[in-house]
Amino acid sequence: MGVAIRRAGAADREDVIRLLDAALVHDPVSSWVFPEEGHRLRTHRALMGAFLDIALDEGYVDVTEDGAAAALWWSVPAGPHGDDAGAEDGPALLRRAVDPGNERVEVIGRLTEAIHPTDRAHEYLHLIAVRPDRQGEGLGTALVTAVLDRCDRDGLHAYLEASNARSRDLYARLGFTFMGTTLDLPDGPPMWPMWRAPRV
């Protein structure tokens, strides 16, 4: 039996934020951004909300019909990004909105921007989350595969940064290839930039 997937909208906002927070609050990267657990438990939800709002506004969000899993995507054109004269500084704005005293909110945005490929148009998987009690059922794989099938049909590449070794291995099984150099967060965990060419 297949997994039913739909496009999320503004009406899904609170449910998706709750899901992202529950699924990712103990992720190695989230733990690096908010190293003090009590502060993370209070503030992580705001960061997930900010990411979701950006995706709803500038990208797209897919959810399983039962709301147990969600993926935040962007369609990224080829060419430099974020260099427009007068453009607002995204990482700084995010830090100001979410946790002004925490420079790591801004640092991670700058580091991921710096390694993001610019030479080819691609679909960018920014975040994916599966409710903790539903992990291991293939929901995340179904969400990613739905977009990858479209990438294959349309000749599009795909990109992501895996935040832990388990997800890196899962993405490798889906055709993503490690790009060769980890993004090592200062005094923190590695992230694995991964690229997938369309399958003909």
Rank of each mutant, 00 (worst) to 15 (best):
R40T: 06
H81D: 09
A97Q: 11
F34I: 01
L127S: 06
G136W: 09
D83V: 14
T43Q: 09
L125I: 00
I108S: 00
A69Q: 04
A97Y: 02
E65M: 13
Y60K: 14
R95H: 02
A92D: 04
G86A: 11
R40W: 12
T145S: 15
V61F: 04
Y124P: 12
D133P: 13
C151A: 06
F34D: 01
V105K: 00
L56E: 00
Y124V: 01
D66W: 04
D53P: 10
D84T: 14
H81W: 12
W32K: 12
A69L: 14
D57A: 12
A85P: 06
G79D: 05
A69K: 03
G59Y: 04
L52E: 04
E65H: 15
L148K: 04
R95M: 10
L143Y: 01
E37P: 10
A46N: 14
R96K: 15
R120I: 05
R110G: 07
H81S: 15
D62N: 05
G67M: 08
Q135D: 14
W32L: 00
E137G: 00
R40D: 05
D133H: 10
E106M: 03
R40L: 12
L47N: 00
D83P: 11
E88P: 05
E36T: 08
A129E: 00
E106Y: 03
A85C: 14
V105W: 04
H116G: 11
A78M: 11
G138L: 12
A78G: 10
A85F: 11
V130I: 07
R104A: 01
G109W: 08
G86M: 03
V33I: 11
H44G: 15
L47A: 04
E88Y: 05
L127F: 09
L111E: 11
V33W: 04
V107Y: 09
H122L: 07
A46I: 14
G138I: 05
A50R: 14
V29F: 03
T112M: 14
T145D: 06
A129Y: 00
T64C: 00
L143V: 01
D62V: 06
Q135W: 05
H122I: 07
T141A: 13
S75Q: 15
I108H: 07
A114F: 09
T118A: 15
G38F: 12
P132S: 05
H26I: 13
